[in-house]
């Protein structure tokens, strides 16, 4: 089972690239995905939840089960800071 993870903005500094393909064996929680791609990023997001946006197939995890939201085969996860733009 594969999922696609897209990392934007300065979060990319933690993982080194924009797109990551992750192989998973069974549905996996967002919290565990974060730990897998970068424990440092996971820690930052845990300490600054107000400064992060995490979407599963375009829907904010805050409207699902937060960090316990499960991701399944073929899902797309987007992880980005609450960026500015003016």
């Amino acid at each position: 089972m594969m999922i696609e993870v897209v990392v934007l903005g300065f979060f990319q500094d933690y993982v080194g690239k924009k797109k990551i393909e992750l192989e998973i064996e069974k549905p996996i929680a967002i919290r565990d995905i974060l730990k897998r791609i970068s424990p440092e990023l996971a820690e930052y997001i845990e300490n600054h939840p107000e400064n992060s946006i995490i979407l599963v197939n375009g829907v904010s995890i805050y409207n699902m089960k937060g960090f316990d939201t499960k991701v399944r085969d073929g899902d797309k996860v987007s992880i980005m800071p609450v960026v500015g733009g003016g």
Binding site: V6, L8, D13, G58, V83, G84, G85, G86
Partner: peptide, 23 residues
């Protein structure tokens, strides 16, 4: 601020790809 280095690199342009990602 954690955002500072990234801000200094790209300024408001950092939101371009963010907007694309969010349609």
């Amino acid at each position: 601020a954690p955002m500072y280095p990234h801000w200094m690199e790209q300024g408001t342009m950092m939101i371009y790809e963010w907007c694309q990602e969010n349609s």
